[in-house]
Amino acid sequence: MKKKKERRSFALFLLPGFTGVCGLVLAPFADVVRRSFVTAVTQEYVGLSNYRRVFANEAFLLAVKNTVRFTAVSLPVLLTLGLLLAMLLSGLANAQIWKSVFLLPMAMPAATVAIVWRMVFAEGGFLNLALGTDIDYMETAGSFWVLVFSYVWKNLGYTVILWLAGIHSVPLDTTEAARVDGAETCRLWRSVILPQTRGSFYTIAVLSFLNTFKAFREAYLVAGAYPQESIYLLSHLFNNWFASLDVDKMAAAAVCMAGVLLIFILLFSALCLREDD
């Protein structure tokens, strides 16, 4: 096909979608980048002063700290648990029912989950009943662990499916060969199968990382806009700055967040791409 014609067809098919993406996402984000360097009211150029204000803001620092801590704790837990369950499932001929059960939390709207978490974690709730204690987990530093639990609960099925797909994509002949060579099950997993799922590991990690931002939903519905301070996340901060229309601070924070995520995503895709292209 001729180059010129190819380009024209590409443009025609893409045009409707691209107009929207440009108009609703790219162009306004460029405007946000501009706004991050000016004052909200007078539109005067102020250099990095908005960024300085953001980084001096206590709520921002708390939110960053909590978000990093939340991610650093919940991601490894989620990935390990997901892998273990996927390993258990991979040997089963009919894993469909288990997979559906594990995916069920994904279908449960945050609104319905919030009420259950209250029954479990309140002072007179199931958890205290089981442990014989009386701690209101939502009002203490324990709320952090409630959020970790909630996140893992919600995303575990997703992760198991991804790990399973990774495990199943390992060519059968390599595992057969290892078995013929007398490798024990343990050895087989450690030296043959797991190393080959490294590519999956990166993708699962990125997708799960991006889902950590959605943990805000349960946190918000259970604890409101100003929760116990150990679960005050970046999402809360954006939400509250938005409510008070702190445009210049929000702009600077959004640009920082986009920058950090962009670096993270590009780094990740560089790691993955090297393997196949």
């Binding site: 993406v21 108009g23 609703l24 996402v25 162009a27 306004p28 984000f29 405007d31 946000v32 990125v206 991006l210 931002f213 959605k214 970046l234 999402s235 954006f238 938005f242 445009v247 929000m250 702009a251 959004a254 967040m257 986009a258 995520l261 962009l262 995503i265 895709s269």
Partner: peptide, 19 residues
Amino acid sequence: YVVLMLMPFQVTMLSQYLV
């Protein structure tokens, strides 16, 4: 497009509001 797909709502919240 892929990068946009991966961005959480908080990043685009303000730009969406403006538009």
